[in-house]
Simulated scan of single mutants.
Amino acid sequence: MSGSDSGSRSTSGARTALLLAHGAGGSVAANYGPVMEELTARYTVIGADYPGAGTAPRSTRPLELDELADRLVAAADAQGIERFAVSGFSLGGPVAIRLATRHPERVTALVLTAPFARADAALRLTAQVWRALVEAGDPDTLGRFLLARALSPAALEALGRQGVEAAVKEAGATAPEGTPEHVELVERLDVTADLGRITAPTLVVSPADDALVPPRLHRAVAAGIPGARLVEIPGGHLPFAEQPQRWATLLSGAAE
């Protein structure tokens, strides 16, 4: 896996190209790292970190969905890739949806994991608290907040008390500097009108115990996209942490 100051990521694989759109407060490496080996064995994998994630410089202004979508397309262009499947995780879901409506002739398939078309009142409140904790510089409380919403109850119990405390410290300390801009975009984006315009075969992967982006929002995305399939998997918001093998299999199968 290689990168540049622009935050682009590319790994040579085989056959189909697969673009990766990561989540808010994440990066290509953080969200797809656990499944990257399987993906690169089958695909040419291309990603682009959002501003303020990975090595990409932080934005000095609010982020726009169109710009994030075109950032991914530019990464494909830089590799000479004309057509590709797109995987969008969490915030990457609406990024992938917008990409598919801006460049329909280039998208061969969509795989949307824990996506949302717009934040409802509950998700907006969650995003506002998330952003406030990052901006307050309180990594311990941030870590506890994120862990309680990102992992399923079963996964948290399995960690044990010491494991939870270690995970809290890691989650609070590793938030990318651009997280406030990522989360602010979550609060205001709306791709509801884009859903009916998608023509690419689409799979929506819905983690059943997702407390961050609840399954009702995943289902709404699937219902709005013509012919979309919905697959429910166990676990919380982070399938790469709780269900990496299952998630990798779904990503690989749907991107063919």
Rank of each mutant, 00 (worst) to 15 (best):
L185R: 05
A24F: 05
Y50G: 02
V183C: 03
E184S: 14
L185S: 01
K169H: 06
A175T: 02
R9S: 08
G178I: 01
V111H: 03
F89G: 08
P215F: 08
R161P: 13
E67T: 12
E64A: 13
T192S: 15
P62I: 09
V35G: 03
T108L: 09
G236P: 02
G47T: 09
L156P: 00
A29H: 07
I198D: 05
N31D: 15
S8Y: 10
I46L: 13
L195I: 11
A211Q: 12
Q79D: 10
V168E: 01
V221N: 04
D190Q: 10
T44R: 15
M36W: 14
A29K: 02
T192A: 14
P239W: 01
M1I: 13
F84P: 04
F84D: 06
A109F: 07
A75R: 05
F89T: 08
F89N: 08
L189W: 07
V134N: 00
P115H: 00
Y43I: 00
Q128V: 06
A17R: 06
E135F: 01
Q79R: 15
A254T: 01
A155W: 04
R118S: 14
E165R: 14
A154N: 06
T192Y: 13
A119V: 01
A85R: 07
A24S: 15
G137T: 04
I97F: 08
D140W: 06
P104E: 05
V204H: 08
L212G: 00
I225Q: 07
R246L: 15
G7A: 13
T192L: 14
V134M: 00
G52L: 11
A132H: 05
A53I: 00
S206T: 13
P51Y: 09
V35Y: 12
Y50N: 14
A74D: 14
